[in-house]
Each structure stands twice: as C-alpha cells, then as structure tokens.
Amino acid sequence: MITLSYFLTFSSLWVLTALFDSALYHYSIWEGLKYLLFNEISMDMVYLISGLLIGLAFCIVTDIRLYRNKKKGNQAKGNKN
C-alpha cells in the first residue's frame, strides 16, 4: 500500500509539474511530460534520484514488514481457533 501510494503521488506530482510548465511555456502536456524526463533531469539530479530510490526502498521494506506482521497475526489467530 505504501509503495502504491508512493507511485501514485509521484505520478500526480509529475503531471502537475508538467501542466504548469506547459501552461507557462505554451506547449502541450505531452511535451511537458517529455521535457521533464529528458531535459530537466541533469547530472546533479543523480543525488535526488538516489534519494528517490532510498524512499522507494523504505516503502518496499515497510510494505514487506507489514505483510509479514499481518501474516503472523493471522497465523496466531488460526492457532488459537
């Protein structure tokens, strides 16, 4: 769930940024999306992409831990019954 929320929010922010760029520079939304991907991601962005990947790793690990806890909880309930 946390990973899903991460991707959803990432995409929404991407679209919002592209929308504003396209409104400001008078080009289409598709061009705005492409521009963000190919032009604005510069060399120094590698630091931020690393940060983004760290965030993604956090999400995946948290999701796995939550899933394991849930599974354990279900098993404990099953044993009691």
């Binding site: 929010t9 922010l13 940024t17 760290i54 965030g55 956090f58 999400c59």
Partner: peptide
C-alpha cells in the same frame, strides 16, 4: 510515509 515522502519533496523541489 514520512521518510519516503520527504524524499519525494526533495526531488520535486528541484524539478
């Protein structure tokens, strides 16, 4: 959500 979304904010603050 705090650490992952803080990273998202850092990314978009530049983008």
């Amino acid at each position: 959500f705090s650490i992952p979304f803080a990273m998202l904010v850092a990314f978009y603050s530049v983008l």
